[in-house]
Design a protein around this nucleic acid. Structure first.
Length: 574
DNA sequence: GCCGTTTTCGGCCCGACTGTTTTCAGTCG
């Protein structure tokens, strides 16, 4: 997959051009192209082979040629030359919050620091304040920016950011004069990782709210503190931006601060074409400067002739066009999920007894769950031997008779071994109600090997589902190399579902692959892979991923009632 | 550098906060 490399090159080119004070629209073009490449689920190499690079929005003749050049030579000459011209540390300086191209260049040209440490020493020695246009404050801010950069690197999992955002919303909503409140930004779009939390408040009296916000005990550092906008870094490292607007503008502001940036740009272009202007205060007629909409997001979309676009879809992935033609899907919701096909108990590496897991699932409204402890090869997770699995099946059957309001099914998360065979014999799998097959080893195999392995597992007539199909762990391990088209095709042909694993560090399939999979006719299943009783709460992250993948409930296997599911299973693979 | 239901040339989203300025440039989202 060369896409991440192209993304990095385009982003770097944008920064390098910025340092050269190049045409800002040219710079934006590289950024836009990078965003659109990021959103692809298919490898650029394949798109290039079909000669369709220019069908990607933001990719024209020139950028298509740069991609082709990279595929052919592993290099982009234009990029190499730009880099040669620019010292590496100058580029690195742009990572410091508050330091942009102008400041970076001014400092670099005069002081020639070689690294962050040297720059910091220069700041401490009072050398930066002597430069034209800079005083003590600028110097101070750069020093603090360096500190921030060291503390606040990387992104935070949605599973951590969302609860924090909700907590902040709940606390701030109790404030006097708050007429409306919501978190916005990538948290509201349910992106898998979050850079900072955005909170929007509707109120006529912003100053006291701002004051209280920046004085919170859990605030580490105040980055900005204005009348309507403040930014802080929390002690645990996450940045939170708070914005206060009048309640008449709440919808326009919520739309704006939810983003994505690319979605906003498309909306504004559309507005412009129709003689309107959009900002965070509303939709205005350019001619009369009269406000047309702004109280609610629904009102804003309606005024633009669009149906309401749920936040999860606002990624500039065709949603505006679909909304204009009434073709948005009716997205799956958490309440549509009837069962969970993937959970563990103390028998393998779970923390709770089977009964506790079932009770927890029932409490959350699930109607059926499949117990899928690990198989024998996964020693580290105390995988079940055939003998223990047979015992467990019996216990499951007995326990199920005692249950009401929820059905417990017998299953296994069986390992797909390195040659593609399964960790249990068919005779044993046959006794189970539902089999999940997953890769837990041999991540470094070649693309062909892993693809063959997974396809072979899907051809087993008892395997209903492939668990966490790409094996990635956010911030820890990349997805293994696999030919997705081959996997999706085989999944469709063998009637095997693919999982959207809800565990916040997995979210696997991710939303772009999940979208392509169901568009190719593959059934998906949203599972929690719970290892403790409270992890059933992760379901909402999996549902969000499915929504971001444009899934309706018809695309999701666990939206079926148990009788329907059983019918489907009986028909499947027979 | 991209793009076209006004355009193949001339546009390209919009505003808040900060610091160093006496009216604005730089940075950020």
């Amino acid at each position: 997959m060369i896409n991440p490399l192209i993304v990095e090159i385009f982003d770097d080119i944008a920064l390098l051009l910025e340092l050269q004070d190049d045409n800002p629209f040219r710079i934006r073009a590289y950024r836009r192209a990078s965003l659109n490449v990021q959103a692809l689920s298919e490898d650029l190499t394949q798109i290039a082979e079909r000669g369709e690079l220019q069908s990607i929005p933001g990719i024209g003749v020139d950028l298509a040629n740069k991609i082709k050049e990279y595929i052919a030579t592993g290099k982009v000459k234009f990029y190499e030359e730009l880099r040669k011209k620019t010292p590496a540390f100058l580029l690195e300086m742009l990572d410091i919050p508050g330091v942009g191209p102008k400041t970076a260049k001014a400092i670099f040209e005069k002081l020639k620091p070689k690294n962050l440490k040297e720059l910091e020493a220069m700041g401490r020695a009072g050398k930066i304040r002597k430069l034209p246009g800079m005083k003590e404050k600028t110097e101070q801010n750069i020093l603090e920016g360096i500190l921030l950069l060291q503390k606040h690197r990387g992104r935070t999992l949605l599973g951590k950011a969302l609860p924090l955002a909700r907590e902040l919303v709940s606390q701030l909503s109790g404030f006097k004069g708050v007429n409306g409140i919501s978190y916005a930004g990538s948290t509201r779009r349910m992106c898998e990782t979050i850079r900072d939390i955005d909170i929007l408040i509707a109120s006529a009296a912003s100053a006291p709210i701002m004051d209280a916000f920046v004085r919170r005990k859990d605030v580490w550092k105040v980055l900005a503190h204005g009348h309507t906008k403040s930014s802080v870094v929390m002690k645990e490292g996450l940045q939170v931006d708070l914005r206060v607007v009048d309640k008449d503008c709440f919808g326009a502001a919520l739309l704006y601060f939810t983003g994505s940036k690319a979605h906003n740009i498309q909306l504004r272009s559309l507005a412009k074409k129709r003689g309107y202007k959009i900002n965070e205060y509303g939709l205005f007629s350019v001619k009369s400067n009269k406000r047309i909409a702004g109280r609610t997001e629904e009102e804003m979309y309606k005024a633009l002739g669009l149906s309401y676009i749920p936040p999860e879809l606002r990624e500039d992935q065709g949603e505006i066009d679909a909304a204009a033609h009434g073709k948005l899907p009716r997205l799956v919701e958490k309440k549509d999920i009837k069962g969970d096909f993937h959970m563990h108990s103390k028998w393998s590496d779970g923390a709770n007894e089977i009964e506790e897991m079932v009770a927890s699932a029932k409490k959350r409204g699930l109607k059926h769950v499949v117990l899928t402890d690990h198989s024998q090869s996964l020693k580290i997770a105390n995988g079940l031997s055939p003998k223990r699995l047979l015992q467990q099946i019996e216990i499951v059957r007995k326990l199920n008779k005692k249950l009401s309001g929820i059905t417990l099914l017998a299953g296994s998360e069986v390992d797909i071994l390195s040659d593609g065979s399964l960790d249990f014999e068919d005779d044993l799998l046959k006794k189970l109600d539902f089999v999940v097959a997953s890769v837990h080893s041999g991540f470094k195999q070649s693309k062909e090997q892993i693809t063959r392995r997974i396809v072979k597992a899907m051809q087993n007539k008892y395997v209903r589902l492939i668990g966490h199909p790409t094996g990635r762990l956010l911030g820890e391990r990349n997805a293994y190399e696999v030919d997705f088209d081959a996997v999706f095709k085989a999944a469709r042909e063998t009637n095997t579902a693919l999982e959207i694993n809800s565990y916040p560090q997995r979210l696997d399939l991710n939303y772009t692959y999940a979208r392509r999979a169901h568009e190719m006719g593959v059934m998906l299943a949203i599972d929690t892979d719970s290892h403790t009783h409270d992890q059933f709460d992760n379901l909402e992250y999996g549902v969000a991923t499915a929504r971001r993948a444009w899934c309706a409930k018809e695309n999701i296997l666990n939206c079926l009632d148990l009788p329907e599911l059983k019918k489907r299973i009986a028909k499947q693979k027979s």
